[in-house]
């Protein structure tokens, strides 16, 4: 049974490619308005879980529900924005302006044979405004820094006004300062703009002060709940599934970092 305010809901989902489960008996949900951090080491099945949410893979067991509908009945994909891990691995010589990159986000919303009109152009500028990149709209995307590019890709995901934004390891290849600004931006999008967020990362330490919910994944779901409960979740268990000692709750942000 899915509660109506769970935008994404996985029930007892298991998945395997060949032999051996990649994901086993996962029950995982994203409530409306939440900022969920999904953490797990490399190879823990995070990317597989995202593919299940987008219906790119079908689970062998269990159900996936999106906006209260069974996944095969759900078609309104513009409600879910996605920023891929590989978003900034594009060819940096590609001659596209920031404005044009963000407009790509309207492709499916506009549909075939439709052209951008004034309101669409405004939506692009609004999305850029939201991520603080409006001054760069006519720059070529390759001229920007990694952190700026990441903001542009967020804007591209936001321009179709999705209700949920899924970010897969978005800070890979972005320097530490930009990364913390970036989490700041995500927190703002969640609190002020009411966008539900799923942030997938292996970087467990830095996110626990921003997110409202945490899920720890390594083949099975080791923890899934609100952040304050997670803080009592003992460190030994986390390091147990990470396979080495990790500092989970090192919130030294007040000291301005390193």
């Amino acid at each position: 049974m899915s509660t109506p305010n769970n935008l994404i809901d996985l029930q007892n989902v298991s998945f395997h490619y060949g032999d051996g489960y990649v994901l086993e008996d996962i029950s995982f949900s994203i409530p409306e308005g939440a900022f969920v951090g999904l953490v797990g080491p490399n190879g823990s099945g995070k990317s597989t879980l995202i593919k299940l949410i987008f219906g790119l893979l079908k689970p062998q067991k269990g159900n996936v529900q999106i906006f209260g509908k069974k996944i095969n009945k759900f078609h309104d994909w513009s409600k879910i924005g996605y920023v891929s891990q590989k978003a900034n691995s594009f060819n940096s010589g590609f001659p596209a302006s920031v404005f044009e990159v963000v407009s790509m986000g309207l492709t499916s919303k506009l549909g075939l044979f439709k052209f951008m009109k004034a309101p669409h152009r405004k939506a692009v500028m609004d999305a850029l405004q939201l991520v603080g990149m409006s001054d760069f709209s006519s720059s070529n995307i390759g001229e920007l820094s990694g952190g700026q590019q990441q903001r542009v890709f967020i804007a591209r995901a936001l321009v179709s006004q999705p209700e949920v934004l899924i970010l897969d390891e978005p800070t890979v290849g972005v320097d530490a300062n930009s990364t913390s600004d970036f989490y700041e931006l995500l927190g703002k999008l969640n609190k002020e703009n009411g966008i539900t967020l799923l942030l997938v990362t292996h970087d467990i330490g830095t996110i626990t002060d921003k997110v409202t919910h945490v899920a720890c994944l390594n083949k099975t779901l080791h923890f899934h709940g609100e952040t304050n409960e997670f803080e009592q979740f003992n460190e030994r268990e986390v390091s147990g599934f990470y396979g080495h000692h990790v500092h989970v709750l090192s919130h030294d942000h007040d000291h301005g970092g390193i």
Partner: peptide, 22 residues
């Protein structure tokens, strides 16, 4: 002209274009 935005999106980022239903 008719397929401009799809062609552009695919050229830039095929994977993301696929996820967006192109």
């Amino acid at each position: 002209t008719l397929l401009y935005k799809e062609l552009f999106f695919l050229s830039f980022d095929e994977e993301q274009a696929n996820v967006s239903g192109v």
